[in-house]
Structure formats: C-alpha cells, structure tokens
Computed example of a mutant assay.
Amino acid sequence: MEFGVAVASRGEWQVLTVTGEIDMATAPRFRQRLLGVISTGAQNVVIDLSSVDFIDSTGLGVLMGAAKRVRSAGGDIRLVSVGSRLAELIELTRLDRVLDVFDSVAAATDQSGL
C-alpha cells in the first residue's frame, strides 16, 4: 500500500489518517504533514494508524515529537490502532503509556474523553 496522509476535521479534532508504511523514507513527509496541521493551531489531533502496515523508530520519533508540541500548547494527541502487530509494537515500545490508544476514530474523538 502506498504511503499517504489524509486530514479531516471531526468536531474539535483534526484526524490524520495514515496509510502504508512509516519508515525512514516516508517519515519526513509524515512529519511535514503532521506539523503542518499542528502549526494551524490544532489543539486536538488524532492519528489513525489502522491502515499502517509498518512503523519504524523514525516514525515513532515523529509521533513522540508531535505529542510534545501538541501538549506544550495545551492540546491532546491520540492514536487509533486496530492491527494486532502494530498494537504489539506500540505496547512493546511503551508508546501506549505516553499516548492514549483507541480502537476507532469515533472512540478517540469522543468529547467525554477531554
């Protein structure tokens, strides 16, 4: 699957839906798109990784950097991860202790979670 990032608004949330692999080759484009959304003043960001086949340490670094930026501005950043392999990686790297992980975009954008 080819790498891509689509951005949509859902209530107070900006949702980035990522497809393909996030690795050393695609991480710069992912970072640029994510920081572009954050620089528009987005306070709440959901990153939907349910269509991501693979993510390496470069991609994980992009997620961590984005989390720092969003939180330093008083916002929130959440992940959506459906694939068991990706969920295992998120758990193994303890990213789930830094970022809230949800099973769906609807659950991640639920306003009662704010």
Results as ranks from 00 to 15, higher is better:
T19I: 02
I22Q: 00
T19P: 01
V15P: 00
P28W: 13
E12C: 07
D56N: 10
T58G: 05
T58C: 09
L35Q: 13
T19V: 07
T17P: 03
R29H: 12
G11R: 06
I38E: 10
F54K: 02
T17W: 02
S39Y: 11
E21D: 09
E12I: 09
F30W: 08
A27T: 00
V37T: 14
S39T: 15
T17D: 06
V46H: 06
S50R: 14
S9R: 11
R33T: 15
S9L: 13
T40Y: 09
A8I: 13
L49H: 07
L49A: 05
G61E: 09
T58K: 02
L34K: 02
V37R: 08
S57E: 10
M24W: 05
V45I: 11
R33Q: 14
R33W: 00
G61K: 08
W13C: 00
M24D: 06
R29M: 14
V15C: 05
W13H: 12
G36N: 09
R31C: 04
L60S: 02
Q14M: 13
T40H: 14
T40A: 09
D53W: 01
I22T: 00
P28S: 11
R29K: 14
V18H: 00
R10M: 12
Q14T: 12
V46T: 09
N44F: 12
G20V: 01
A25L: 13
I38L: 10
R29W: 10
G61H: 09
V45K: 04
T40L: 15
A42D: 12
S51K: 10
L16Y: 02
L49P: 01
L34I: 07
S57L: 03
S57Y: 08
T17Y: 03
L60E: 03
D23R: 03
I38K: 15
S57Q: 11
L35A: 05
R31K: 14
L60I: 12
I47Y: 02
R10S: 12
V15R: 00
V45P: 01
T58F: 07
